Computed example of a mutant assay.
Amino acid sequence: MKILLTGFDPFGGESINPSWEVVRRIPKKIKDTEIKGIQIPTVFQKSFEVLKKEIESFNPDVVICVGQAGGRQGITPERIAINIDDARIADNEENQPIDFPIQKDGESAYFSTLPIKAMVDKMIASGFPASVSNTAGTFVCNHIMYQVLYYASKNHPSLKVGFIHVPFLPEQVKEKNQYPSMELEEMVHALTLCVETVIEYQDKEDLKTIGGAIH
């Protein structure tokens, strides 16, 4: 089994992106599964162009994309990606699509094919703040999640795909301490648990536990 992890480069004026800092520290082998981490650009179309080449060369069984969700308190596996780009800020190449469909022939939305509730359960049991997220936003994080799920549906139906958001690092919130943060070592441990869960659940259905939200 092979798992491909992705993290983004810094964006929005930040000098660091916790998603890449976490991904590049995940062990290269977990439970006899080969793990590869790559950095992708925080650029709408280019992000998937880079990732698609890596998928076709590495031929993974699972793709887990990781991104920064500044303001969130814990680790949040995403449930769904929607077919829209609506950028509140420009990406790293000054693209700012508004109400633009990601794939004209794609579904309105695609659901993660990872065991997101089992991941959350395992993280919480290990003492980490975690929850299922029901929105990946409308920026590059949602874009890449949608693109990979669309690609899998058209080309590799057996490919498992999902997205996980991580919070700010402490050094990112020194001057904006109203935002929660999480230590890098904790994020690495939590994401490693997510990868372990994906491996454990490769032939099993996800847990049927409460992961919904009122708003």
Rank of each mutant, 00 (worst) to 15 (best):
H156C: 07
F44G: 07
L207K: 15
I98F: 10
M123T: 00
L159K: 11
V198H: 00
K29Q: 15
I84E: 14
Q39M: 15
D61T: 09
N177W: 07
E183D: 14
R72H: 10
Q73A: 12
G127K: 09
P97M: 02
I89C: 04
K204E: 04
V140E: 08
Q178E: 13
I30L: 05
G137R: 12
G162H: 04
E34L: 11
L184H: 07
D203S: 13
K117G: 03
L159F: 13
E94V: 04
L4W: 11
V23K: 09
I84G: 09
S19G: 01
I102M: 08
G67N: 00
C141M: 05
D203V: 06
F128Q: 00
E93F: 07
I3V: 14
I84K: 12
D105P: 13
A152W: 13
T76K: 00
A190W: 02
H156M: 14
Q73I: 12
E56R: 07
F168E: 08
D206C: 01
K2E: 06
T192D: 02
D85S: 11
H143T: 01
M145E: 00
I16T: 15
K46Q: 13
K117V: 02
I144R: 10
P157C: 06
R88S: 11
Y151S: 03
E34C: 04
K204V: 00
T113L: 14
G127H: 11
I38C: 09
L159E: 12
G106D: 12
L191D: 06
V198E: 01
C141I: 02
T113R: 15
M1Q: 03
L191C: 14
L149F: 07
S15L: 14
W20E: 08
A109N: 08
G12A: 09
I144T: 10
A190F: 03
L207S: 12
K36V: 13
T76Y: 00
G162N: 03
E94Y: 10
I30H: 04
G211T: 01
F100Y: 13
Q45H: 11
D9F: 05
V50D: 06
F168V: 05
V62T: 13
S19A: 05
S57Q: 12
Y151I: 03
P41Y: 15
G67L: 00
V161K: 10
D32R: 08
Q39L: 04
L191I: 15
S15F: 12
V22H: 10
G7N: 03
Q73S: 09
D203G: 01
A90N: 06
G212L: 09
V166H: 04
I116C: 01
I3L: 09
A152R: 15
P157E: 07
N59V: 11
P167T: 12
A87L: 01
E93M: 11
G211M: 02
K176I: 05
A190L: 05
C65Y: 02
Y179T: 02
E21V: 03
S131C: 03
V23M: 15
S181W: 10
L51N: 13
A81D: 07
